[in-house]
Protein backbone atom coordinates (compact mmCIF):
# COMPACT_ATOMS: atom_id res chain seq x y z
CA UNK A 1 0.00 0.00 0.00
CA UNK A 2 0.97 3.60 -0.51
CA UNK A 3 0.56 6.42 1.98
CA UNK A 4 2.18 9.83 2.10
CA UNK A 5 1.37 12.51 4.68
CA UNK A 6 2.41 16.09 4.16
CA UNK A 7 1.88 18.62 6.97
CA UNK A 8 2.65 21.46 4.59
CA UNK A 9 -0.18 20.47 2.27
CA UNK A 10 0.15 23.86 0.68
CA UNK A 11 3.25 22.67 -1.18
CA UNK A 12 1.31 20.02 -3.05
CA UNK A 13 -1.34 22.55 -4.02
CA UNK A 14 1.37 24.78 -5.45
CA UNK A 15 3.01 21.92 -7.33
CA UNK A 16 -0.29 21.19 -9.04
CA UNK A 17 -0.76 24.83 -9.94
CA UNK A 18 2.65 24.75 -11.60
CA UNK A 19 1.77 21.69 -13.71
CA UNK A 20 -1.79 21.97 -14.79
CA UNK A 21 -1.30 24.53 -17.58
CA UNK A 22 1.30 22.40 -19.28
CA UNK A 23 -0.10 18.91 -18.74
CA UNK A 24 -3.59 17.52 -18.66
CA UNK A 25 -2.64 14.10 -17.42
CA UNK A 26 0.48 12.45 -16.05
CA UNK A 27 1.74 9.50 -14.06
CA UNK A 28 3.04 9.85 -10.53
CA UNK A 29 5.67 7.18 -9.99
CA UNK A 30 5.89 6.19 -6.36
CA UNK A 31 8.75 4.24 -4.83
CA UNK A 32 10.15 3.97 -1.33
CA UNK A 33 12.45 6.89 -2.11
CA UNK A 34 9.65 9.27 -2.93
CA UNK A 35 7.32 10.44 -5.67
CA UNK A 36 8.39 11.40 -9.17
CA UNK A 37 6.64 12.69 -12.23
CA UNK A 38 8.01 13.16 -15.70
CA UNK A 39 5.93 14.20 -18.68
CA UNK A 40 6.13 16.15 -21.90
CA UNK A 41 3.47 18.52 -23.12
CA UNK A 42 1.47 17.47 -26.19
CA UNK A 43 3.72 19.19 -28.67
CA UNK A 44 6.87 17.58 -27.18
CA UNK A 45 8.54 20.97 -26.81
CA UNK A 46 8.77 21.02 -23.05
CA UNK A 47 9.10 18.50 -20.27
CA UNK A 48 8.31 18.72 -16.58
CA UNK A 49 10.07 16.66 -13.99
CA UNK A 50 8.88 16.75 -10.39
CA UNK A 51 10.60 15.14 -7.46
CA UNK A 52 9.21 14.85 -3.95
CA UNK A 53 11.62 12.97 -1.70
CA UNK A 54 10.23 10.57 0.87
CA UNK A 55 12.12 12.27 3.70
CA UNK A 56 10.21 15.47 3.07
CA UNK A 57 6.96 13.81 4.07
CA UNK A 58 5.93 13.34 7.67
CA UNK A 59 4.94 9.83 6.95
CA UNK A 60 5.83 7.93 3.84
CA UNK A 61 5.08 4.34 3.08
CA UNK A 62 5.35 2.67 -0.32
CA UNK A 63 5.43 -1.11 -0.20
CA UNK A 64 5.59 -1.64 -3.92
CA UNK A 65 6.58 0.69 -6.70
CA UNK A 66 3.48 1.98 -8.34
CA UNK A 67 2.60 4.33 -11.10
CA UNK A 68 -0.57 6.35 -10.64
CA UNK A 69 -1.93 7.91 -13.81
CA UNK A 70 -3.99 10.96 -12.95
CA UNK A 71 -6.00 13.54 -14.74
CA UNK A 72 -4.26 16.65 -13.46
CA UNK A 73 -7.23 18.90 -14.07
CA UNK A 74 -9.31 16.70 -11.78
CA UNK A 75 -6.50 16.41 -9.26
CA UNK A 76 -6.14 20.17 -9.22
CA UNK A 77 -9.87 20.54 -8.62
CA UNK A 78 -9.63 18.23 -5.63
CA UNK A 79 -6.58 19.97 -4.19
CA UNK A 80 -8.37 23.29 -4.44
CA UNK A 81 -10.77 21.91 -1.86
CA UNK A 82 -7.93 21.83 0.65
CA UNK A 83 -7.24 24.89 2.78
CA UNK A 84 -3.73 26.31 2.72
CA UNK A 85 -2.92 25.08 6.22
CA UNK A 86 -4.47 21.64 5.78
CA UNK A 87 -2.47 18.46 6.23
CA UNK A 88 -2.72 16.37 3.07
CA UNK A 89 -2.47 12.58 2.96
CA UNK A 90 -2.41 10.61 -0.31
CA UNK A 91 -3.40 6.95 -0.10
CA UNK A 92 -3.69 4.08 -2.56
CA UNK A 93 -3.74 0.31 -2.50
CA UNK A 94 -1.08 -1.63 -4.41
CA UNK A 95 -3.21 -2.53 -7.39
CA UNK A 96 -5.62 0.31 -6.93
CA UNK A 97 -8.04 1.84 -9.39
CA UNK A 98 -8.53 4.80 -7.09
CA UNK A 99 -6.47 7.23 -5.10
CA UNK A 100 -7.69 8.97 -1.93
CA UNK A 101 -6.78 12.45 -0.77
CA UNK A 102 -7.41 13.23 2.89
CA UNK A 103 -7.39 16.84 4.11
CA UNK A 104 -7.17 17.46 7.86
CA UNK A 105 -7.45 20.88 9.38
CA UNK A 106 -4.54 21.73 11.74
CA UNK A 107 -6.74 21.42 14.81
CA UNK A 108 -7.99 18.02 13.61
CA UNK A 109 -11.59 19.18 13.82
CA UNK A 110 -12.35 18.86 10.14
CA UNK A 111 -11.42 15.92 7.99
CA UNK A 112 -12.34 15.65 4.32
CA UNK A 113 -11.54 12.83 1.99
CA UNK A 114 -11.81 12.74 -1.79
CA UNK A 115 -11.48 9.73 -4.00
CA UNK A 116 -10.40 9.95 -7.62
CA UNK A 117 -10.23 7.35 -10.37
CA UNK A 118 -6.77 6.51 -11.67
CA UNK A 119 -6.02 6.33 -15.38
CA UNK A 120 -4.01 3.90 -17.38
CA UNK A 121 -1.47 6.12 -19.07
CA UNK A 122 1.03 4.99 -21.58
CA UNK A 123 3.61 7.72 -21.44
CA UNK A 124 7.03 7.94 -22.94
CA UNK A 125 9.86 8.58 -20.53
CA UNK A 126 12.90 10.46 -21.71
CA UNK A 127 16.42 9.81 -20.54
CA UNK A 128 17.93 13.14 -19.60
CA UNK A 129 21.71 13.02 -19.63
CA UNK A 130 23.70 14.67 -16.85
CA UNK A 131 24.96 17.89 -18.35
CA UNK A 132 27.49 20.47 -17.19
CA UNK A 133 25.84 23.65 -18.29
CA UNK A 134 27.86 26.49 -19.77
CA UNK A 135 25.88 29.04 -17.80
CA UNK A 136 23.87 28.74 -14.60
CA UNK A 137 21.88 31.79 -13.60
CA UNK A 138 20.10 32.18 -10.28
CA UNK A 139 17.65 35.02 -9.85
CA UNK A 140 14.57 35.87 -7.81
CA UNK A 141 11.63 33.85 -9.14
CA UNK A 142 9.28 36.83 -9.10
CA UNK A 143 11.79 38.86 -11.12
CA UNK A 144 11.96 36.14 -13.77
CA UNK A 145 8.18 35.95 -13.95
CA UNK A 146 7.97 39.71 -14.44
CA UNK A 147 10.62 39.73 -17.16
CA UNK A 148 8.91 37.00 -19.18
CA UNK A 149 5.51 38.60 -18.76
CA UNK A 150 6.78 41.99 -19.88
CA UNK A 151 8.70 40.70 -22.88
CA UNK A 152 5.82 38.48 -24.02
CA UNK A 153 4.07 41.63 -25.14
CA UNK A 154 6.73 42.27 -27.76
CA UNK A 155 7.15 38.96 -29.49
CA UNK A 156 6.56 35.24 -29.49
CA UNK A 157 10.09 34.44 -28.45
CA UNK A 158 12.65 35.74 -26.04
CA UNK A 159 16.39 35.63 -26.52
CA UNK A 160 18.37 34.88 -23.38
CA UNK A 161 22.04 35.70 -23.63
CA UNK A 162 24.46 35.25 -20.82
CA UNK A 163 27.88 36.90 -20.77
CA UNK A 164 30.44 37.87 -18.14
CA UNK A 165 28.64 41.19 -17.62
CA UNK A 166 25.34 39.64 -16.85
CA UNK A 167 22.26 38.18 -18.44
CA UNK A 168 20.15 39.86 -21.08
CA UNK A 169 16.58 39.01 -22.04
CA UNK A 170 15.31 40.47 -25.31
CA UNK A 171 12.25 40.27 -27.51
CA UNK A 172 11.36 41.91 -30.79
CA UNK A 173 8.07 42.21 -32.62
CA UNK A 174 5.68 44.47 -34.49
CA UNK A 175 5.53 47.14 -31.80
CA UNK A 176 9.26 47.30 -31.25
CA UNK A 177 12.08 45.86 -29.23
CA UNK A 178 12.50 45.18 -25.52
CA UNK A 179 15.71 44.45 -23.62
CA UNK A 180 16.17 43.69 -19.94
CA UNK A 181 19.66 43.37 -18.52
CA UNK A 182 20.48 41.97 -15.12
CA UNK A 183 23.93 42.29 -13.62
CA UNK A 184 25.26 40.07 -10.85
CA UNK A 185 24.41 41.43 -7.45
CA UNK A 186 27.50 43.01 -5.96
CA UNK A 187 26.75 42.65 -2.28
CA UNK A 188 24.42 39.99 -1.07
CA UNK A 189 22.34 41.20 1.82
CA UNK A 190 19.43 38.94 1.20
CA UNK A 191 20.24 35.70 -0.50
CA UNK A 192 16.73 35.45 -1.90
CA UNK A 193 17.08 38.64 -3.89
CA UNK A 194 20.49 37.92 -5.37
CA UNK A 195 21.32 37.42 -9.02
CA UNK A 196 24.26 35.06 -9.42
CA UNK A 197 25.85 33.81 -12.60
CA UNK A 198 28.24 30.91 -12.95
CA UNK A 199 29.55 30.84 -16.46
CA UNK A 200 32.08 28.81 -18.45
CA UNK A 201 31.30 30.34 -21.83
CA UNK A 202 28.85 32.90 -23.17
CA UNK A 203 25.54 31.42 -24.37
CA UNK A 204 22.72 32.88 -26.44
CA UNK A 205 19.53 30.91 -27.01
CA UNK A 206 15.99 31.67 -28.20
CA UNK A 207 12.88 30.32 -26.50
CA UNK A 208 9.13 30.55 -26.95
CA UNK A 209 7.49 32.90 -24.45
CA UNK A 210 4.38 30.77 -24.32
CA UNK A 211 6.20 27.98 -22.52
CA UNK A 212 8.29 30.22 -20.29
CA UNK A 213 5.08 31.87 -19.15
CA UNK A 214 3.66 28.50 -18.22
CA UNK A 215 6.82 27.63 -16.30
CA UNK A 216 6.54 30.77 -14.20
CA UNK A 217 3.33 29.38 -12.73
CA UNK A 218 5.74 27.70 -10.30
CA UNK A 219 6.92 31.07 -8.96
CA UNK A 220 4.86 30.56 -5.80
CA UNK A 221 6.98 27.51 -4.92
CA UNK A 222 10.33 29.11 -4.30
CA UNK A 223 11.97 32.53 -3.84
CA UNK A 224 14.68 31.75 -6.38
CA UNK A 225 14.73 30.15 -9.81
CA UNK A 226 17.72 28.59 -11.55
CA UNK A 227 18.19 28.78 -15.32
CA UNK A 228 20.77 26.42 -16.83
CA UNK A 229 21.86 26.86 -20.43
CA UNK A 230 24.35 25.41 -22.87
CA UNK A 231 24.60 26.11 -26.59
CA UNK A 232 22.05 24.17 -28.66
CA UNK A 233 20.56 22.14 -25.81
CA UNK A 234 17.30 22.56 -23.91
CA UNK A 235 17.05 25.15 -21.17
CA UNK A 236 16.42 23.96 -17.60
CA UNK A 237 14.27 26.09 -15.31
CA UNK A 238 14.31 24.79 -11.76
CA UNK A 239 12.25 25.70 -8.71
CA UNK A 240 12.90 24.05 -5.36
CA UNK A 241 9.96 22.60 -3.46
CA UNK A 242 10.80 23.51 0.13
CA UNK A 243 13.69 21.22 1.02
CA UNK A 244 11.96 18.10 -0.24
CA UNK A 245 12.48 18.23 -3.99
CA UNK A 246 12.08 20.31 -7.11
CA UNK A 247 10.05 21.10 -10.20
CA UNK A 248 12.27 21.19 -13.27
CA UNK A 249 11.14 22.36 -16.68
CA UNK A 250 13.07 21.57 -19.83
CA UNK A 251 12.45 23.62 -22.95
CA UNK A 252 13.76 22.93 -26.44
CA UNK A 253 15.32 26.03 -28.01
CA UNK A 254 14.18 27.57 -31.26
CA UNK A 255 16.56 26.79 -34.06
CA UNK A 256 17.42 28.49 -37.30
CA UNK A 257 15.84 26.93 -40.31
CA UNK A 258 18.31 25.45 -42.76
CA UNK A 259 16.17 24.61 -45.81
CA UNK A 260 14.28 27.80 -46.42
Amino acid sequence: MFEARLVQGNLLKKVLESLKDLLTEASWDCADTGIQLQAMDNSHVSLVSVQLRADGFDKFRCDRQLSMGMNLTSMSKILRCAANDDIITIKAQDQADNVTFVFESPNQEKVADYEMKLMNLDQEHLGIPETDYAAVIKLPAAEFQRIIKDLSQFGESVVISCTKEGVKFSAAGDIGVGNIKLAQTASVDKEEEAVTIEMQEPVTLTFACRYLNMFTKATCLAPQVTLSMSPEVPLVVEYKIGDMGHVRYYLAPKIEDEDN
Partner: peptide, 15 residues
Amino acid sequence: QGSTQGRLDGFFKVL
Protein backbone atom coordinates in the same frame (compact mmCIF):
# COMPACT_ATOMS: atom_id res chain seq x y z
CA GLN B 1 10.48 34.37 -40.85
CA GLY B 2 11.93 33.51 -37.51
CA SER B 3 13.24 30.25 -36.28
CA THR B 4 11.58 26.90 -35.83
CA GLN B 5 10.73 25.54 -32.42
CA GLY B 6 12.83 22.49 -31.58
CA ARG B 7 11.48 19.33 -29.99
CA LEU B 8 12.76 17.63 -26.87
CA ASP B 9 12.78 14.20 -28.52
CA GLY B 10 15.52 15.64 -30.73
CA PHE B 11 17.71 16.12 -27.67
CA PHE B 12 16.71 13.43 -25.19
CA LYS B 13 16.32 9.77 -26.00
CA VAL B 14 13.05 8.02 -25.32
CA LEU B 15 13.60 5.28 -22.77
